[in-house]
């Protein structure tokens, strides 16, 4: 057990280190910005005094490491600074958008995870059957499709041809849960299709690998029922890779959500980020990037820790 705890603590420390380095990279990328941010905001016609005053106000005269520490301190206490484009508090912008994105991602995950694992296990069990091949071709195609293609096909079929679902996913602030689920159905199902394909293929690969191992064959040769072989012998060992696969793909949602939000005009964080890139609102992009990257890293970290914690081999190894 001590061994296990130490491994988990090591991973956590590594995760914190990664977060720190990534924050440095995100901050550093902005340092690469050619020219002067103050000049950029005020435009070419600004006088030298106003530019100098703004530089002072934004703290641009401090050396880079001081500004980094100020920025990081602000972020940790929930203050992301102000938007360059309209001067609004970034933290309030993020707070209003973040809930939308989280809702959409959770919705998609709640459908995709059980679906993908069931399909993946079935494809592995009936390896090389017609069902398996069909699933293989379908999932390979789904992976190759750009997200917006899937989104527009669904939009065309379910919204334009048969007006079953609305094409714009914004549900306003006073919607009931049922209304919210109904209005965000199309974007959610787009994400489901994209990540289910990934998740299913990886689950299938993990289980096929496992079923080829000698101890499974041994269990079969002993005459155990297929259900017992799967549930008692294969599944405990498959748990770690499956958890890993799920967490990795939830992390993939982080990028998928950006495109899907734009297609369905959904007021989430991804939409905010794309709009800010277009207007070159660098502080907002910085903040969005940091939030997305942190979620991504935390999910990967969770995957690591869970797969260590559920690995039966590590559990029984003393010292």
């Amino acid at each position: 057990m001590i061994h296990l705890t130490r491994m988990i603590l090591q991973r956590l420390a590594l995760g914190v280190l990664t977060l720190f380095v990534v924050s440095v990279v995100i901050f550093g990328a902005v340092e690469l910005l050619p020219g002067d941010i103050a000049q950029e905001i005020l435009g070419q016609s600004a006088t030298e005094q106003t530019v100098a005053a703004l530089r002072e106000e934004l703290g641009l005269n401090d050396p880079a490491h001081v500004r980094y520490l100020n920025w990081l301190g602000g972020v940790l206490s929930g203050d992301f600074g102000r938007s360059l484009a309209n001067g609004r508090e970034i933290s309030s912008l993020l707070a209003s958008r973040f809930g939308y994105t989280l809702f959409l991602a959770a919705y998609a995950a709640a459908i995709a995870v059980p679906l993908a694992i069931t399909l993946g296990v079935l494809a592995a069990l009936y390896c090389n059957s017609i069902f398996d091949r069909l699933i293989n071709i379908l999932s390979l195609s789904a992976i190759s499709f750009p997200e917006f293609f899937v989104a527009y096909i669904l939009l065309y079929l379910l919204s334009a041809e048969h007006a079953i679902f609305p094409s714009i996913a914004d549900y306003g602030s006073q919607a009931s849960l049922g209304e919210m689920l109904y209005r965000t159905f199309l974007p959610a199902i787009t994400l489901v299709l994209v990540i289910t394909a990934h998740m299913m293929r990886m689950t299938r690969a993990a289980i096929v690998n496992l079923l080829a191992q000698p101890y499974i064959e041994m269990a079969r040769l002993k005459g155990l029922s297929p259900a017992r072989v799967i549930l008692r012998h294969a599944l405990p060992n498959a748990l770690a890779p499956i958890i890993n696969v799920v967490a990795l793909n939830l992390a993939y949602l982080v990028t998928g959500v950006v495109i899907v939000e734009v297609v369905f005009v959904y007021p989430g964080l991804g939409q905010l980020m794309v709009d800010s890139v277009a207007t070159r609102d660098i502080t907002v992009v910085q903040a969005c990037c940091l939030v997305f990257a942190s979620i991504y890293i935390l999910l990967n970290l969770t995957a690591d820790v869970l797969s260590i914690a559920t690995n039966p081999r590590l559990l029984h190894r003393g010292r």
Binding site: V22, A29, P34, V254, T255, V258, S276, V277, V285, C289
Partner: peptide
Amino acid sequence: DVMMAIPALLFSLLLLTVF
């Protein structure tokens, strides 16, 4: 390792804003 810790699409969005 560090570059791969940031999702590709987001990293490219960040860099495109800068450049």
